[in-house]
Design a protein around this nucleic acid. Structure first.
Lengths: 202, 202
DNA sequence: TTTATTTTTTAACAAATGTGAAATGAATAC
DNA sequence: GTATTCATTTCACATTTGTTAAAAAATAAA
């Protein structure tokens, strides 16, 4: 894909999700940068200030936490049309307490801190949009929390497949097991019991 | 406690959490009502429009979901100094998809829809505050999701006790078990293994 | 108090998931 | 192509949690 096509994805997102007009887009696009972001690198890292917000034009990333025992836990996945970054850290320019890692090579549309500020001055409505997104995320997490606690692992795996049908093919199962809260071997056992939906080929 | 004392609790909350000035409080208090809300009643009910937002001056409530098998699941608890209500349903006056039930007799400070609108016109900053609260909730839920999935039930129970030290004494253990995602009998088994922190007396 | 009702605990067994080690398979580097 | 690394599966067994039923304890009602 060409750079222009990646940027177009963000234009579409802006028009549909943010209700940005053509005029607003003309303003916005001056502040955007396209960035290649390689697999396994951390876009947000615990203890460091998050200096950019990114829109994923292509790729899969995850938020994760590191545990005392050395293992890490995948909190959730993000991919095309999601934002990556830590708003708390970004807007207040304070150290982040989160980690966001690329699980595939990614193409990101980037807002730097400086550009975001200039942009916000031109389009104050962006604040409202941020709030709406936050609210949406909160409700989604609440639903996840409840379903995860009260459904067994097999059902949770099926829900994962329904919600992230495009991700299974693109990342190792170990991340998915961690996201579901089970050991990789347990996921493997579950997959054997539902052969119809467990294929990893396209 | 007297009505005045309950209202004072909200005044304190407003001053500390919402940074409301004395002048703002004088405006706000004209729009408030005190309401007694009895145990087991639903303040928010699935399918019904949420016509009031409440601040809990005294009592414990829970958000819950009803499952197909007839059981219900406790999503999370709220108590003194928390708000109760469904903002989506309230502000858009559309049917709610949530349930909020009183687990003890409660004293609530109430905003009706009409009063909230009048109030918002006098203090537009309230919107920002709402957004901040939402964001805070989202981050809390995220943390919960992760810890719940990757810690065993005993550790989750200890975290519950740390986070809600005041609730154990006031509601049946069945709700807590549901919140932790385990059967009541399993919780009982856990409590036996940690006698020091499991007492229900004051 | 005495009786109901609700809440909590206990027990035995079943089912689900974790753990460690090893084998197989797939992708990548040389 | 072969070697090397990484990803996935398999297995045996340990541990945790669920389930069912009943008893005990606590609370509310009469």
């Amino acid at each position: 894909m060409t750079d222009q096509e990646y940027i177009l994805r963000f234009k579409n997102f802006s028009a549909q999700q943010l209700q940005a007009t053509e005029e607003e887009w003309e303003v916005m696009k001056e502040y955007l940068q396209l960035q290649y972001f390689p697999k396994n690198e951390y876009f947000v890292a615990e203890g460091k200030v998050c200096r950019k917000l990114g829109f994923i034009a292509e790729g899969v990333m995850r938020y994760c936490m590191f545990r005392d025992d050395g293992n890490d836990v995948t909190c959730f996945f993000i991919r095309e049309n999601d934002f990556v970054g830590d708003p708390d850290s970004f807007f207040l320019q304070k150290p982040s307490d989160k980690n966001a890692q690329a699980l595939t090579d990614c193409r990101l549309i980037i807002f730097t801190y400086e550009n975001m500020h200039k942009f916000l001055q031109q389009l104050p409505r962006a604040k409202e949009i941020n709030a709406a997104i936050d609210h949406h995320v909160a409700m989604k997490l609440l639903h996840q929390r409840t379903s995860l606690l009260n459904l067994d692992a097999g059902v949770r795996y099926k829900e994962f497949l329904r919600e992230y049908p495009d991700i299974l093919q693109r990342i190792p199962l170990s991340y998915i097991a961690s996201f579901l809260g089970i050991a990789q071997q347990s996921l493997s056992r579950l997959r054997k019991q539902m052969p119809s939906i467990s294929k990893k080929e396209n």
